[in-house]
Simulated scan of single mutants.
Amino acid sequence: MGRFIRIIRSSADRSLGIILFLLVWELLPTLGIVNKAFLSPPSSVVVSITKLFSTGNLWVHVFASLQRSLSGLLLAIVAGTLLGLFLGWFKRFEAIVDPLLQLFRQISAFALFPVFILFLGIGETSKTAIILWASFWPILLNTVSGVKYVDKLLIDSAKSMGGSQSFLFFRVILPAAAPSIFTGIRLGGAYCITALVAAEMIGSSAGLGFYILNSQEIFQIPDMYAGIIVLAFLGLLLNYILAVIEARFTRWKKGLSVNA
């Protein structure tokens, strides 16, 4: 019984901030403090989301956005992890390449969007490229950091027992760096959702970013906020999935438990 009460209290504490936020949001336009034309109350947004569900348009936009974001994120995971492992393992190579990488990572994905369009057109390839670029850097930097800062005692212990370089890399370095790598992947997931909106604002006919911008242009403000809310939930879902995958691959971490 005591455990049940603790769960209820914890859920109430976690929900309180959201409830207060929604209440303030509902009251501001309802009481006329903020113009309803600019800030639709949550009740109107819920109606718009329900309409999206009932017409089936929601799934068209969600599927288009998922296809783009996952394509870019998966490419970023592969490229960022492989290059990060290589840079973290080979110190001299990192010393040569790092200044160039530090320069490139300062360039915003949004600033490069015109370049991607020039070379790749306004189709799906340029949209995937901007998501890839935005997601790539946190994955790369966290992977490099994870490999470089593996506990030296672990490495020395493996070497003292005659472990080969391949054993050292796959059985010591990679597992020890996994938490940092997954932190980068989760950050990359957040960046890919942010870049998705910008990517879909040009040359798209479907996707949540397109839906948000199109709703704003035709002044369907409740629909605009509905698209924003759905996009936020999509980001939360992606982060949750990545967190579950991380937990399964890093079960050795102390205190970690995963519900099957």
Rank of each mutant, 00 (worst) to 15 (best):
L168S: 11
L22Q: 13
A64K: 09
V258Q: 02
L242Q: 08
S65E: 07
F93L: 15
R248I: 13
S40M: 03
A129R: 05
R14T: 10
F113T: 06
Y191W: 14
T250S: 12
T30V: 11
I49N: 11
T81E: 03
K148E: 14
I212Y: 01
L23P: 00
I241M: 13
A12N: 02
G209N: 10
I218G: 00
R3F: 08
S71H: 00
N35V: 02
P42S: 04
N142P: 02
Y191A: 07
V45E: 06
A247P: 00
F233N: 13
A178F: 15
L112C: 03
L234T: 11
F249A: 06
V97T: 10
Y240E: 05
N214T: 11
K152I: 04
T55E: 15
F233R: 11
E200T: 05
A226V: 09
L83F: 12
S205Y: 11
L39R: 02
R6G: 14
L85C: 07
P114M: 06
D13T: 12
W133K: 01
P175G: 06
A37M: 11
F21V: 07
L187I: 12
L58S: 04
I193C: 05
E26W: 10
W133V: 07
N214A: 12
S54R: 12
L118K: 09
S44R: 13
Y149H: 12
Y211H: 12
S11H: 11
G121L: 11
G189Q: 08
S215I: 03
L112F: 00
V97I: 14
G2K: 15
I245D: 01
L39E: 01
A176N: 04
Y211E: 09
R248D: 02
F136I: 08
W25V: 10
G80C: 01
S204Q: 14
F110W: 01
V24H: 10
A64C: 06
L196G: 00
A95Q: 14
R68D: 03
F53M: 12
I202K: 04
D151Q: 06
Q220L: 09
P175W: 03
G2D: 15
I117M: 12
V150H: 04
F249G: 00
E94V: 03
S205K: 15
G121V: 10
L87G: 12
V45Y: 05
P42W: 08
F90Q: 05
I241A: 14
A158N: 11
G162C: 08
L153M: 09
D13E: 13
G56L: 02
L168R: 14
L23C: 09
G84S: 07
R186H: 04
K159H: 09
Y191I: 00
A95C: 01
Q165L: 05
P29I: 00
T250H: 02
V244W: 04
I185F: 00
N35T: 06
L132N: 06
L70I: 15
A190I: 14
F136S: 06
L39N: 02
R6V: 02
S11K: 09
W89S: 13
S257I: 13
Q102V: 07
L74D: 07
V244I: 12
F93Q: 05
L236S: 03
A134S: 14
